[in-house]
């Protein structure tokens, strides 16, 4: 089940937990998104993620289900943080377990691409000179 949470997550612990309940796993692909220190030439102090939490949680669950239906994988986990996050910290984690690597790579890339277009979450960047909402898909 997907999670939307303020607190940080332990990548190794999340990978082990998903792998342990994924019988038949031969490969695990992960994507970890973190806070960049530079954005469009500006030094980032921190970022804030706002969400439409009720909808985002449901959409994240649907995203996992869609990935499992679309690709020949065993399981998929998505975690996205909200609130204020500092440079270098974790933002989003996707873990995909599969019997073979190809499907796991494809599913992981598809899931992060879909997340950026489907999940109602917004990023606010704080720089030394101010703050602004990011309203584009890098």
């Amino acid at each position: 089940m997907a999670r939307l949470q303020k607190e940080n997550f332990d990548v190794g612990k999340e990978i082990r937990a998903l792998a342990e309940k994924s019988r038949g796993t031969g490969g695990i692909v992960t994507f970890l998104g973190t806070v960049r220190d530079i954005s469009k030439g500006h030094e980032i102090v921190k970022i804030n993620f706002e969400s439409y939490a009720d909808m985002a949680e449901k959409e994240l669950d649907r995203l996992e289900d869609d990935a499992k239906e679309k690709f020949d994988i065993i399981d998929c986990l998505v975690i996205h943080r909200t609130g204020e996050i500092t440079v270098g910290e974790n933002i989003v984690l996707i873990v995909v377990t599969s019997a073979h690597r190809s499907a796991a790579f494809d599913a992981c890339e598809w899931t992060i691409d879909e997340l950026k277009t489907r999940i109602p979450i917004w990023k606010e960047e704080f720089t030394a000179t101010g703050k602004h909402w990011v309203e584009e898909h890098p």
Partner: peptide, 11 residues
């Protein structure tokens, strides 16, 4: 109803 500006979740 929710009015949603362009989404920017992820990294």
């Amino acid at each position: 109803i929710a009015v949603l500006p362009p989404l920017s979740g992820g990294f």
